[in-house]
């Protein structure tokens, strides 16, 4: 009877804790850089020229909470797709230890590679229907620049972060980080390899914090 009572109390505490986490929020706005230069596809020696031009995603930022957070107990999985000769999303934030899959949704080969110190790899040429989907585990924090050995104009970025609390802004720069733990942290906004803004924040239980990056 006493044990059942204990379980009930523990359940309520856990539920309250979960609710508190779910309601601890940071939201705000990041001033984004100017629109990226639109790439020009080199089609000099292509026998088959498909009409249309590539339309890369507009710039966005990654906002994340920095702190001593535990590593994931299971391997998170994310995807970076190649579609219409572009990486989608063009910027992918992941937590260290995440496995990123690179499905090819075009009707041609891709050959994704990276020479970035945080992760050097070359997936080789792989077909649209390649099984298993080519993947890599990103276990070192840092910025990984992705390219395609076949399509020179393709660029993608994977931002490997030591935190599970991150979000990509929308194209207007708005963001909303939810499910945060209470405490004092640094809130960072990654805009480019040269620019990361940061602000100290205190996350309180069941509170929404407004933060704007100039």
């Amino acid at each position: 009877m006493r044990f059942r009572h204990f379980l009930r109390i523990a359940g309520v505490i856990l539920a309250l804790a979960g609710a508190a986490r779910a309601e601890s929020v940071i939201e705000g706005h990041v001033v984004l850089p100017k629109t990226r230069t639109t790439p020009v596809v080199n089609k000099r020696y292509e026998i088959v020229t498909k009409g249309g031009v590539v339309a890369p995603s507009p710039p966005v930022a990654v906002v994340y909470l920095e702190g001593p957070f535990p590593k994931p107990t299971t391997t998170p999985v994310a995807q970076m797709v190649q579609k219409d000769l572009l990486f989608t999303p063009a910027l992918l934030p992941v937590q260290t230890g995440t496995k990123v899959e690179f499905p090819n949704m075009d009707d041609t080969y891709h050959n994704i590679f990276s020479y970035s110190p945080a992760k050097r790899f070359d997936l080789g040429r792989y077909r649209p229907d390649e099984k298993p989907v080519p993947s890599q585990v990103f276990d070192v924090p840092g910025m990984v620049t992705l390219r395609c050995d076949i399509h020179e104009h393709m660029r993608g970025l994977i931002l490997v972060l030591e935190t599970p609390y991150f979000v990509t802004t929308d194209t207007d720069g708005r963001f909303r980080l939810t499910g945060l733990p209470p405490g004092r942290f640094k809130l960072k906004a990654w805009l480019s390899s040269k620019t990361t803004l940061e602000l100290p924040v205190e996350v309180k239980v069941d509170a929404t914090l407004q933060v704007n990056f100039p």
Partner: peptide, 13 residues
């Protein structure tokens, strides 16, 4: 090299 795309249907190099 110069590569230029004019609209979706014209390409110069």
């Amino acid at each position: 090299f110069l590569d230029a795309q004019i609209g979706p249907h014209i390409y110069l190099f």
